[in-house]
């Protein structure tokens, strides 16, 4: 068994002070402020990408340091990260459809639900 040679999970949980958590918390708060600042400005199509980039950085910090993914064993990293991979596959599949659609097939092209104008 690999467990004889590989360091145990408990050993891998390296000793570090509580200060690290406060640093991560402060960075998360700064990014929250940043996302509020940029979020309410009209940057056109950039808004969503900036917001998602900030959210991804925040999520990565939470997963790596608060959830100790940086110290987790390989199997644990794999199962969690694979769920994000499948989420991306699902999104790409759907967006492959949406982005290649003809304008007329979008609901915005549908006639008004109020019925035809007389």
């Amino acid at each position: 068994m690999a467990s004889h040679t590989a360091p145990s999970e408990a050993e891998r949980h390296a000793e570090h002070g509580a200060g690290r958590y406060f640093v991560v918390w402060a960075i998360l708060l700064v990014f929250t402020g940043l996302t509020v600042l940029t979020g309410r400005q009209d940057l056109g199509a950039w808004n969503i990408w900036i917001a998602m980039a900030i959210a991804s950085v925040k999520a990565t910090l939470v997963v790596l340091f608060f959830m100790h993914m940086s110290e987790a064993s390989g199997a644990n990293r794999l199962v969690f990260l694979v769920s994000f991979v499948f989420m991306a596959v699902m999104m790409m599949g759907v967006f492959g459809d949406l982005w290649t659609r003809n304008e007329m097939t979008l609901p915005s092209a549908a006639p008004s639900t109020l019925g035809p104008e007389l």
């Binding site: 996302t35 808004n47 969503i48 917001a51 939470v62 997963v63 959830m67």
Partner: peptide, 21 residues
């Protein structure tokens, strides 16, 4: 604690998507 962090993680994405987009 891990479960609680997940709750935080979901909100990190929900907040900009719902309030800021």
């Amino acid at each position: 604690g891990l479960y609680w962090h997940l709750v935080d993680l979901v909100w990190i994405f929900l907040f900009p998507l719902l309030y800021l987009i």
